Simulated assay, not measured.
Amino acid sequence: MKIRFPLMLLGLLAASQAFAQSPTATALPEWDKLTPAQRETLLAPIRDRWNSEPEAREHMLEHAQRWQRMTPEQRKQARRGVKRFERMNPEQREQARVLYRHMAELPAEQRKQLQEQWRQMTPEQRRAWILKNAPDQPPPEAKP
């Protein structure tokens, strides 16, 4: 299963990179003062995905609503998490996915305990934990 990042975050990230490459990146106005062409550049990826993936619309809307409820600090943490995930190798990403799914179901105190246990595990112990707790899917291929 492929984890999808919050749609708005990805769309805005892509658009911000395009704007950042222009010499006027620091002079860009607030949303209300963007030109129609600039707004279209930002919104087109979202509209295209919305139209091409009707089965994902509910998920996309939930992500957008959750993003709106986040504080600026929570949004900053989310962006850092996305960047960290992007820098992970495939094995680390799979570990993160399994760990996240498992932790999402735990009460806060148990989640905190698992986080502490995870920090203390060796790489071999982590792999064993992942294999034990992964949803019903074949284990990742072993590296030679």
Rank of each mutant, 00 (worst) to 15 (best):
S22F: 00
S16C: 03
P72D: 06
Q21R: 14
F5M: 06
A96I: 01
R87G: 06
R119H: 07
R79D: 01
T122N: 08
K33W: 05
A134K: 11
D48M: 11
A18M: 04
L10S: 06
M1F: 04
L42D: 03
G81S: 02
E30Q: 09
G81W: 02
G11S: 05
N51H: 13
I3F: 05
P45L: 08
N133S: 01
K2P: 10
M8K: 01
E86Y: 02
T26Y: 02
L34F: 12
L34M: 14
W50C: 09
M103E: 14
R69D: 14
Q110G: 05
R127E: 14
A134I: 03
P36W: 11
A18W: 03
R47L: 12
P107Y: 09
H63S: 15
P72L: 05
P139H: 10
S22Q: 15
Q74I: 06
K83W: 00
E40Q: 15
P54E: 08
Q68H: 13
A37K: 13
D136Y: 02
Q92A: 09
A37H: 08
H59G: 05
M8P: 00
E58H: 09
T71S: 15
D136N: 08
P144D: 13
A44C: 02
H102C: 05
E86P: 00
A44G: 03
I46K: 05
K2A: 05
P123Q: 06
L114W: 07
W129I: 08
A64H: 14
Y100M: 11
I130Y: 05
Q38D: 14
E109D: 14
R127S: 11
Q21W: 01
L9G: 00
P72M: 08
M1H: 05
M60H: 06
G81E: 06
E109H: 10
A142H: 10
A14Q: 07
Q92C: 01
P6S: 03
N133Y: 03
A15T: 09
A37C: 05
E86V: 08
Q38F: 06
E58S: 12
Q115T: 10
L12W: 03
V98C: 04
A108M: 12
L28D: 01
P140A: 09
L7R: 09
Q74L: 08
T71H: 12
E53Q: 15
D48N: 13
A25L: 09
R111L: 10
L114R: 09
I3S: 04
P72N: 08
N133C: 01
